[in-house]
Nucleic acid binder design. Structure first.
Lengths: 225, 225, 225, 225
DNA sequence: AATGAATGAGGGTTCATTCAT
DNA sequence: CATGAATGAACCCTCATTCAT
């Protein structure tokens, strides 16, 4: 399925080591020597596979975003309703970051703030991945499931921003302990907002019925008034 | 009001230069020599005022968060309702980042991912500033203005995460052009969510009345069926 | 005539590649990898035939000087007079450098300034080749064709120095365009010098003859006596 | 007379050390650390004054050629006759190389074969210095002191080539022991060539005298006719 | 015979930092 | 108070060379 030449395996081995080392020490603080030690290889060997420290860094994402997108698309095919799809996507992101903490560190703490990374293919893949969210939001808006007033880009940034904010907190402060637990609260928050809803169930209808006379249905009043 | 000894002025001069330089080149890529050049001082002079490059970095926030908190508190005193206070806080953050782009870069791209920064006083001030948001959220929850089900910490992370996500995009990609314009859409999003609200005004009640009997309106239904 | 085992051919292939690469990039700047690429072989294969990069360099001259000497000797056998032999030798050198520019580069720009090269057999061959010139000069001196006052070593260095100086100019600056064209001017220069010759044909003799006696014109005196 | 700021002195100190080290070990083989050790300074200090190893190398010639040219011009002003001027120039070169052996090594063994050096100001100065020789040759030709048939560029290359060839031999092989001793033999060689001159003093005139008749002096025949 | 793969060894270069003046 | 001058300490990167296959 995947080209697993010996060379390709070595590359993966190095990338895994680099991910771990960069996640732990940061990019500048980590040395190629560190990566070599972690990978059980000499520095020179690293350079046989990656032409520079920076290229090594930029190679870590690889096809990750692309594959994650495929996986997500596959899952979404079986999910009904934009709201549920949002939930699935949020879960997808959180689950991924939770199960790939080193990748999360590299991605959110190192690559995210690197201007040169913006020019790599991997970044384009990341953008395309987030495009999935935009599509679902647009779909929900088009189909009337979501309000017509939402700005899909803002909502997307809200969802991703919240996720990333929490993942970073997790990385640096250790809390929240569990990321995927945020799925429902975050989804509900985005879907419903935080305002106390006018509790439909407490509406009182006072109906007086007079026998043998005309009747009218009581039209409820608008909120905004 | 503020100690403006000559020494203090020089410190400020250096900090301003450092902020600018770090914002432009990043921390590792910037050199003390760069800062010196920007400040019109020699490198050695920088070291007269700051013991290390890192200390210089960590000194940039200074009292910023503390003062911003005071300003915000002052403003909030005149704002009624938790929802409006949220709006004011969101505006406060956006306005600050918009008018202090260099500070935004240093804060969000450099300090935010630095583990050692977590141990500084400045970081505590930042946390305390975000505490204001927590308080307002809790207040809204307590007073019944916000839903009882919200997790104030999640909501806070949502608001801050969204803001930061957009500020970083602004810094790196140049868009959105205008940050403060996000105030209302973001506030509304957080308050109301994105679901299309059941338009109360179009609800139809079909009431059939039969003379000579007694009935009562059906008791309220739960949302979560 | 020449051992052309398969191994020998491969060696030649590598040497030709090395000559080309070293000529173009210089010794230090050229890598074994470059040579391998030029030869269409792997680096390891180079090392099957030459034990080190330096040995490879020192192997480039090979039998060149020896063969050139044989060729020259053969030619000189048919040339009459030391002066004409000098001309032939000068032509031989110039023609060789002109038709072997890569060899010229390696020889004059790289090997010429390498102290270790002085200890190789190839260097001894080069010296022996230049010995031919010495012999001819000495011969011309002995036979009275050349002045008794010349220092054959100086004259040799003059001829070779001029040739090499021009070849190097050719390599680095592209001029003179044509090397063999220098043969006659250089030969004449060395043979005749640059001074304007006292034009014998304008000498006036005034002879007075008196009948009935016998005298002889007094022969001019030698300078050195 | 010369700007001898402290910084300028340091630069000179480093250049002197570099000249010595490069002369001894060659450019590639010498390390900045070697130069530092020779100068009694740290490697980092070298880099305070020269931005790279190559710049250090290219800085060694400095104003040497320019000054040498001035000196030579000054001397030539008091020398009569192109031939004597040639002698002075040859002596000037030889004397300079003899008294500056390290410079000779760097100049003739390292810089002479470096393509990038051709683009430096120092190289232009060297060319201008050799231009002096061309001028003198041309002058001698114009004034009829030298043959009309000489190619001044070839003669120049002959003089310089011979000098450099001998200086290099001196550097690498230790002989000739004394360079300036070459002045006269080389000058004479270039002026007179090596051919045995038709010794005017040995010319035989055979005069047959017939009494009482007309007579003619037997004029020698022109060579070229 | 040929080479893919690995690396030891080393050097150029950068800078944060120090200190005498 | 300010700084010119100096450097220790690292690190990235290169490449000639080796060796198992």
């Amino acid at each position: 399925m995947k080209t697993s030449s010996k060379s390709e395996l070595r590359k993966q081995q190095i990338l895994t080591a680099a991910e771990k080392v960069f996640a732990k020490k940061g990019f500048q603080e980590a040395t190629i020597s560190d990566v070599g030690r972690e990978a059980g290889l000499s520095e020179a060997t690293i350079y046989e596979y990656f032409s520079s420290k920076e290229e090594l860094l930029f190679s870590i994402p690889g096809e990750t975003a692309k594959k994650t997108r495929e996986d997500l698309k596959h899952i979404l095919r079986h999910v009904r309703g934009a709201a549920n799809k949002i939930r699935s996507i949020i879960y997808g992101y959180l689950w991924f970051y939770e199960t790939h903490p080193d990748y999360a560190s590299v991605s959110l703490l190192i690559l995210k703030q690197n201007r040169k990374f913006l020019e790599t293919q991997a970044y384009k893949d990341v953008k395309k991945l987030s495009g999935l969210l935009t599509e679902v939001l647009q779909e929900g808006k088009n189909k009337g499931e979501f309000s017509q007033e939402i700005d899909v880009y803002l909502v997307r940034s809200c969802i991703l921003g919240t996720i990333e904010h929490n993942v970073i907190r997790r990385i640096l402060l250790g809390k929240p302990q569990n990321l995927t637990d945020l799925t429902d609260p975050l989804t509900d928050l985005v879907l419903n907002g935080i305002l106390k809803k006018p509790p439909l169930e407490t509406m009182d209808f006072h109906v007086t019925v007079k026998p043998a006379t005309q009747k009218k249905p009581a039209g409820p009043k608008k909120n905004k008034r």
